[in-house]
Design a protein around this nucleic acid. Sequence first.
DNA 1: CTGTTAGCGCATTCAA
DNA 2: TTGAATGCGCTAACAG
Lengths: 337, 337
Amino acid sequence: MSEKVPTIKEIARRLNISISTVSRALHDHPSIGLRTKMQVQKLAAEMNYEPNQTAIQFKQGKTFTIGLILPNLMEEYFSLAINGVEQVALENNYNVLIGQSHDNLEREQKILETMRRHRVDGIVVSISKQTNNIEHFEQLEKYKIPVVFFDRVPNAPNIHSVWCSLYYSTIDAVELLFRKGHKRVAYMQGPLSLNIKNERLEGYYEAHKRNKAPVSESLIVTTDLSKEGTERAFEKLLSLKEKPTAILAFNDTVALDTIQYAKKKKLKIDKDISVVSYANWPITSYLDFPPIASVEQFPYEQGVRATELLFKLLNTKSPEGSIPYENVVLKSELIVH
Amino acid sequence: MSEKVPTIKEIARRLNISISTVSRALHDHPSIGLRTKMQVQKLAAEMNYEPNQTAIQFKQGKTFTIGLILPNLMEEYFSLAINGVEQVALENNYNVLIGQSHDNLEREQKILETMRRHRVDGIVVSISKQTNNIEHFEQLEKYKIPVVFFDRVPNAPNIHSVWCSLYYSTIDAVELLFRKGHKRVAYMQGPLSLNIKNERLEGYYEAHKRNKAPVSESLIVTTDLSKEGTERAFEKLLSLKEKPTAILAFNDTVALDTIQYAKKKKLKIDKDISVVSYANWPITSYLDFPPIASVEQFPYEQGVRATELLFKLLNTKSPEGSIPYENVVLKSELIVH
DNA sequence: CTGTTAGCGCATTCAA
DNA sequence: TTGAATGCGCTAACAG
């Protein structure tokens, strides 16, 4: 009794016509009689015919699927990016296969392999913190799978990328602190990766330069982004003779850990110490003392632009590698709370 | 110059053997000469041969992909669930196609259609708040696509489901408040959906019953989960002659909005008013006054169990609907902070 | 142990 | 305007 899934072959049989005619009718092919076309479409609708995507994928050599690789989904930041990617993909009738690298290089490579095997048509990726080489991505060229990097973009030539420049906002952020009277602004940086541009630091220096303020190297500390790492970094700042009165934190996690630790140390937030951060988590609005300002990096927008770029690549009948590498740079914005 | 993707046909040609022999060699088929096998595998490796998944999917009538439908990815809660699903899927060499309903019924239906078209082998879903009927899911039976509901499970018979019971933890939560001396515990409930079991409310009543405390209906208010809705609900409580001294909040969002509003109204948290909640967001640890306790619902575990159940269904050679419906119920836990 | 063959569903080229 | 035939890459039934 189990009705089997209808195929064009079955439709053809019932109508006593050939499968190619059915195929054409369903595709509104120009050379097809109106009568037959109507007939076919009517029956197809009645039978709830739906083309077998796997057959089409196979036949066309395309999966109508793009791969999206992210460090993780837990950060709202990346969730927003996903929404952007999904939006554009849906508009193009594409599916999105998501993989999390969990900031682990091997895992990233593994996911890439899975996606390659799955024959995704293209890939959008924000690389893991561990990713210090991009051979595994470069390999994809052999398979003609275009790759667009976004947000966390490797510092390499000959790639397509979309990212958000933090340089000017960082300058804005530090200058905001200067204007508020802070003389010693510390910078709590993340792990140094050779592959990512260090715009935060550059902006930090530039802001000092513009304001003729000397940079004290001891005010630049590093955290591995863990709670403990951030606390250690903060301790280092507290042990200075000339303690900072403000901190530029690598991101909101660092900012929150810093603020929490500061409170534990009986420091008055926004009085003894002010914090400015990156990312602009919505959750910070629930805090009694959120960072006084945040650099917004527009993850949704980045996702959209990256995916649009990918589709542009997909739709370009690649005449053997003549596509110029495209690198889109958005501008971040300092949001003062 | 562009080397084309190697196929078994090409391997066969180069080795002057038949494609079926190659296929067998690559699959470690029992009836194959060791010598030929080695030969084939060696060449395959050299050529970087990789089976064309789309061809296999087509041939086997399977995509080795499961669909995962969630209300949204922004909530860490669901991100954790994803990790659970992903984990089990990977162990079974399956891919996961993720879709967000954004708590919108039409969107949920659309996603379902996309996934059906994509011929996913099975679906794991946490339904949207709007989902008041599950016809669109029942339809999938015709396509022999098994569905496992989890977390937000429709209140319907004949479904497979995994969810986390809140009943006992709710009793624990309310009793905790009683023990702390609270006499009037309010319950701020979410939108009433006919399709979801209302265990929170049941537990709320039971706790009162067990403690011989009368339930005052005016202490039960409803929020649509928006910030404003929660504030209105809270206002209602504040306008009572007999104000509550504690609140059982529908979830952490409601709890945070409540706490924030309470502070705005100059109420002292944990003194004038205490809050207990569901979900247990990690972020609450950054708050000065987090909920004093949270009901943990183990989203990761739920994702794992739901996916395991799905694979059980997939691996059961369905002898025409003889599979008994399975409903796994986990137990939540009250975490006191 | 190995080769031959058929066929999955569809789009498409060639012929009528 | 329509039909017949082909083939995408792979698996598996059947034949040797």
